[in-house]
Design a protein around this nucleic acid. Structure first.
Length: 207
DNA sequence: CTCACGATTGGA
DNA sequence: CCAATCGTGAGC
């Protein structure tokens, strides 16, 4: 098989918009193991293996689209396959992928990625991930495609990596805390800070 | 118009 | 455990 450095190179195709036209809780676990790719000004690419995600849907109160449709959350109601980016705590940006159908608010929060040859913690959390990839509100509403400079590639795990998923309740929310809509790669050292302490729902399901 | 509150993080 | 920091939305 390929050498370590070549694994990121192998993730060369693009996840199509149709991939996202399904319920968020179905898309979220499938996004684990996929790659987040950013084209840099130099023409180089920054790639991160998605190791942790969460699903949000209009019918549950933790979702930004559960209340009123507004300029702030408009993207969440729009076409699936676009990025929904918002500012939280006045400091950090969070990156989501819009899922489901048009006029229905749902999405998947990217909580952590693992970047080959970089320290484990540089993107181990939603805010850290956005900072490392240089993503902010200007990216809100952009389609996840190469011409946006930001897109996703299909699942491709490094050789030898344990692909088992752990399913838990979501992190940092005050409502709908019992919903088991968070997934992460059990073997990754790059999951977010609050990974521990959340109610474990289903350890080690196959990927 | 005022004010409380985050889908977080880094430092005491 | 707590402060940082600011846009949004609920409430007066």
């Amino acid at each position: 098989m390929a050498k370590r450095e070549e694994w990121a190179e192998l993730a060369t195709s693009v996840l199509p918009a149709t991939f996202f036209g399904r319920p968020a809780e179905q898309v979220a676990p499938e996004l684990v193991g996929c790659w987040l790719i950013r084209r840099l000004q130099t023409g180089e690419q920054l790639r991160g293996l998605i190791v942790e995600t969460e699903a949000y849907a209009q019918q549950e109160p933790a979702c930004h689209g559960s209340r009123r449709r507004s300029p702030q959350n408009e993207t969440l109601f729009g076409e699936p396959g676009r990025f929904y980016v918002y500012l939280t705590y006045g400091i950090h940006h969070c990156v989501n992928l819009v899922t489901g159908c048009l006029d229905e608010a749902s999405g998947v929060l990217l909580r952590a990625v693992q970047i080959p040859d970089e320290p484990a913690r540089v993107a181990a959390g939603p805010g850290l991930l956005a900072r490392r990839f240089g993503i902010d509100r200007r990216h809100d509403g952009l389609p996840a495609r190469p011409d946006s400079g930001l897109w996703l590639a299909p699942r491709l795990l490094p050789p030898g990596m344990d692909g088992k998923l752990t399913q838990t309740t979501r992190v940092g929310i005050s409502q709908a805390q019992e919903l088991p809509w968070r997934w992460y790669l059990r073997s990754s050292p790059c999951v977010s800070r609050r990974a521990r302490g959340d109610r474990l729902v289903r350890p080690g399901a196959g990927l």
